[in-house]
C-alpha cells in the first residue's frame, strides 16, 4: 500500500497514462517496431516520469513525453544495436542505430549546464533533436519550439551532428 503521497502520485501517473499511454506507445513502436521492446519502452517512459515527477514541467505533457519516449528508445537501440531482431527488418533501423550510437555532443557549455541544473530544466538531447528533424521531418523552427531552444541553437547542434555522422563509415551513399 502507498502512503498518501505515494497514492497521490500513483493517481497522477495513472491519469497521465490513461491520456498519453497510447501516444507514447505509438511513438515507441515507430522507433522500435511493434512488439515487446516498444511496450517495455512505454513502461520505462512512465517509470522515468515517476522518478522525475517533481522536476518535470507538465504544461503540455505530450511534448515532454514524446521527447522522453524518443530518448528512451534511442538508448534501447544503442544498447541493443547488435541485436537485429530488436526491429522488424525495417530500412530505418540502420539510420536510428547510427543516430543512437553517436555520443552526445559536448556542445553545452559548463555555464549552460549549471543554469540548466539550477532551473531544473531538462536539456534536450541532440540525438532526440536529430530524430525529430531527420526522421520525423520537423522543420528547424518546429524542433526549436518543441525543445525550447532557438532555431540557431538547433541548427548548430544538427550541423555538428551531421558532420560527425558524415565521418562515420558508410554514411556517404551519395553519388551522381
Amino acid at each position: 500500500m502507498f502512503n498518501n503521497k505515494g497514492a497521490d502520485l500513483n493517481n497522477k501517473i495513472t491519469t497521465l497514462y490513461e491520456k498519453y499511454g497510447a501516444m507514447v506507445n505509438r511513438r515507441c513502436q515507430s522507433l522500435l517496431g511493434e512488439g515487446a521492446a516498444a511496450n517495455d519502452a512505454t513502461q520505462d517512459v512512465f517509470l522515468a516520469v515517476v522518478q522525475k515527477y517533481e522536476q518535470l514541467t507538465l504544461n503540455t505533457p505530450s511534448s515532454l513525453l514524446y521527447r522522453m519516449a524518443t530518448n528512451i528508445c534511442l538508448n534501447k537501440i544503442r544498447q541493443k544495436k547488435n541485436d537485429n531482431k530488436l526491429f522488424d527488418q525495417d530500412y530505418e533501423a540502420s539510420l536510428l542505430e547510427k543516430i543512437a550510437s553517436v555520443d552526445e555532443l559536448e556542445l553545452q557549455t559548463i555555464r549552460e549546464k549549471i543554469i540548466g541544473h539550477i532551473f531544473q530544466q531538462e536539456q534536450p538531447s541532440t540525438r532526440t533533436i536529430a530524430v525529430m528533424h531527420w526522421v520525423d521531418g520537423f522543420s528547424l523552427k518546429e524542433v526549436a519550439e518543441e525543445v525550447g531552444m532557438s532555431v540557431s541553437g538547433v541548427r548548430k547542434r544538427l550541423a555538428s551532428l551531421r558532420k560527425k555522422l558524415g565521418e562515420m563509415k558508410g554514411w556517404d551513399n551519395e553519388s551522381f
Partner: peptide, 23 residues
C-alpha cells in the same frame, strides 16, 4: 517530409547534404 526538413537546414545543406534514410 524529410526532404522538406532538409530544406530548413539552410541553402548549403539543402544543395549538398544527404537525406538521412538508412543504409
Amino acid at each position: 517530409r524529410r526532404g522538406k526538413a532538409l530544406a530548413t537546414e539552410g541553402v548549403e545543406v539543402a544543395k549538398s547534404g544527404d537525406l538521412f534514410l538508412g543504409e
